[in-house]
C-alpha cells in the first residue's frame, strides 16, 4: 500500500522541530530513520496530518564520551553505533544489542532515538536502555528535561514523551570495572523481532558471590520487564548452573502473562524467559570472572 497524504517539514534544528510539533492542529509524527514509521505509513496504520523529518538535524548525530558516560545523539544510526570503537570498548552490551537489531540495511537508516520512541516491547534498545539505567534527554516547548529509561517506557508503543517533545540524546554509563554482562535473545530467524530476550549485568564480590544482578527481559510484556525476584535470588549466592536454572525458573514464574500471538504462545514465551535468564546469567558471570582475572 501507499501512505495517505500528509504535510511534510524537514527542520534543521531541534527548536524548529519542536515548534512544528506544537504548531500542528492535528496529529504530527516525528520521522527519524523511518524503519518503523514508514511501514506504518505505507500500511496506513498511521495517518498523520504532518510528518516532521529529523533527518536534516545534523546536530543530533554523534557518539561522545564524558564523565563516565556515552552520550549518543538521537539521530545516530544503529550502523554508526555498531561500527563505533568507542561503544565496542566502553559499553559492549550496547554493541551486542545493536548487532541483534534487524539487518544491515535497517541499521543503516534506523536510529537510536527512533527505537526508543517507538518503544516496541520486543525490540532490543528499550531493554538495553533499562538494563544500563540510561538517561533520555528530551526537548519540548518548555525546555529540556531528562527521563530515566525505566520511567520512559509506559506501555506497548507508548512512552513518557509529550506530543511536542523531541528525544535528543541517550546517555548510558560506560561498563563498570569488574562488571559482567550479557545480551541474548531467541528469534525464529536471525534479524527478526525476538520472541524473548534478556539483558543481564552482574558483578562478583571479593568472596566470589554474585552481586548487583540486574535482569531485563524483552518480548514478554508491554515494556521491558525486570524480574526482581530472580535478581534477589542471585545476589549473595555462589554462581553456578543450579543457581542460573533456579533464577530462570523464578523469572518465568514471576512475570505477568506474556503476549500470545502467531510467533509464540504466552506459555512458550514464559518458558523462553527462563531460558534467557539462565543463559544470560551464565554468560554475564563468566565475563565478570574474566574481568576480575584481568584486574
Amino acid at each position: 500500500m501507499k501512505p495517505a497524504p500528509f504535510e511534510y517539514v524537514a527542520p534543521t534544528t531541534v527548536e524548529e522541530a519542536v515548534s512544528s510539533l506544537s504548531g500542528c492542529d492535528g496529529e504530527a509524527k516525528l520521522l527519524a530513520g523511518g524503519q518503523s514509521l514508514m511501514p506504518l505509513l505505507n500500511m496506513r496504520l498511521a495517518r498523520p496530518d504532518l510528518v516532521v523529518d529529523l533527518g536534516r538535524v545534523a546536530a543530533l548525530d554523534y557518539i561522545r564520551e564524558s564523565d563516565g558516560r556515552l552520550a549518543i545523539g538521537a539521530m545516530t544510526s544503529k550502523r554508526s553505533v555498531e561500527r563505533s570503537g568507542l561503544v565496542a570498548s566502553r559499553q559492549p552490551l550496547l554493541h551486542a544489542a545493536t548487532v541483534l537489531v534487524a539487518h544491515p540495511q535497517i541499521r543503516n537508516r534506523g536510529t537510536v532515538g527512533g527505537s526508543m520512541a517507538q518503544a516496541d516491547p520486543a525490540a532490543e534498545y528499550p531493554a538495553m536502555a533499562v538494563a544500563l539505567d540510561a538517561e533520555l534527554r528530551v526537548v519540548g516547548p518548555d525546555g529540556e528535561r531528562s527521563i530515566n529509561a525505566e520511567d520512559f517506557f509506559v506501555t506497548y508503543l507508548t512512552t513518557a514523551l509529550q506530543p511536542a517533545e523531541v528525544l535528543t540524546e541517550i546517555r548510558v554509563p560506560v561498563l563498570a570495572p569488574g562488571s559482567g554482562w550479557a545480551f541474548t535473545e531467541v528469534a525464529r530467524r536471525h534479524g527478526d523481532f525476538a520472541m524473548a530476550g534478556a539483558a543481564v549485568t552482574v558483578t562478583l564480590d571479593a568472596g566470589g558471590h554474585c552481586a548487583d544482578a540486574k535482569i531485563v527481559l524483552f518480548g514478554v510484556g508491554p515494556v521491558p520487564v525486570r524480574p526482581r525476584g530472580a535478581e534477589q535470588a542471585v545476589n549473595g549466592e555462589r554462581p553456578g548452573e543450579d543457581l542460573y536454572r533456579q533464577a530462570g525458573r523464578k523469572a518465568s514464574e514471576e512475570i505477568d502473562e506474556p503476549l500470545s500471538d502467531v510467533h509464540a504462545s504466552a506459555e512458550y514465551r514464559r518458558h523462553l524467559a527462563g531460558v534467557m535468564v539462565r543463559r544470560g546469567l551464565a554468560e554475564a558471570v563468566a565475563r565478570a570472572a574474566a574481568a576480575r582475572g584481568d584486574a
Binding site: 511534510y8 524503519q35 514508514m38 505505507n42 510528518v51 550502523r79 540495511q105 537508516r109
Partner: peptide, 9 residues
Amino acid sequence: TAVRSCLML
C-alpha cells in the same frame, strides 16, 4: 549506503 527505498520518502 544501502537502504530499503520503500522505507524512505
